[in-house]
């Protein structure tokens, strides 16, 4: 049963990474435009702003 001492923290850590990733995505605006993302994938070229 000592293996629990290792496995439970690992399981929790993995879950926590997921949560952090979600919060990051939320802060980063990944959920601002769900419709646009599905369209943009169809664009052939990356839009070149040329100024960045």
């Amino acid at each position: 049963m000592t293996i629990l001492g290792l496995l439970i923290p690992i399981a929790l850590a993995l879950g926590f990474i997921g949560l952090i990733a979600f919060v990051w995505a939320l802060r980063n605006g990944q959920f601002e435009d769900p419709d646009g993302a599905s369209m943009r994938v169809l664009l052939d070229d990356d839009i070149d702003t040329g100024k960045r």
Binding site: E32, D33, P34, D35, G36, M39, T49, K51, R52
Partner: peptide, 11 residues
């Protein structure tokens, strides 16, 4: 002069 333009499809 435009530095960035981004269209949000959802809104």
């Amino acid at each position: 002069g435009v530095t960035d333009a981004r269209l949000n499809m959802s809104t």
